[in-house]
C-alpha cells in the first residue's frame, strides 16, 4: 500500500483531485452504460407482458373474429 493514511490516499500529494475526478467520472459513465440497457430491457418486457395479459382477456370476447 503506497499511501500511509486515508488522508494521503485522498490527497495523493497534490494530484488526488485530478485522479479521483477522472476515476469517478469514468465509473459514473460505466455504470450508466451497464444500467441503461438493463432498464430498457426490463421496461420493454414489462410493456410486452402488459400487452400480452391485456390482449388475452380482450380476445376472449371476440376470439372468433380473431381467427
Amino acid at each position: 500500500m503506497y499511501f500511509d493514511s486515508l488522508q494521503g490516499l485522498l490527497m495523493m500529494n497534490g494530484h488526488g483531485m485530478y485522479v479521483w475526478s477522472a476515476y469517478l467520472a469514468a465509473i459514473a459513465i460505466i455504470m450508466t452504460l451497464l444500467v441503461v440497457p438493463m432498464r430498457r430491457r426490463a421496461r420493454l418486457l414489462q410493456q410486452l407482458a402488459r400487452e400480452a395479459n391485456g390482449s388475452e382477456d380482450k380476445t376472449v370476447g371476440n376470439a372468433r373474429v380473431e381467427q
Binding site: M1, H15, V19
Partner: peptide
C-alpha cells in the same frame, strides 16, 4: 492501480489515470 503501484518518478500520482485512459 490506485493503491498498490508505485508513483511515477516524473508525473507523480497523476499517472494513475492511465489505468482508465
Amino acid at each position: 492501480g490506485l493503491l498498490f503501484t508505485p508513483p511515477d518518478f516524473r508525473q507523480g500520482d497523476s499517472y494513475r489515470i492511465i489505468y482508465i485512459h
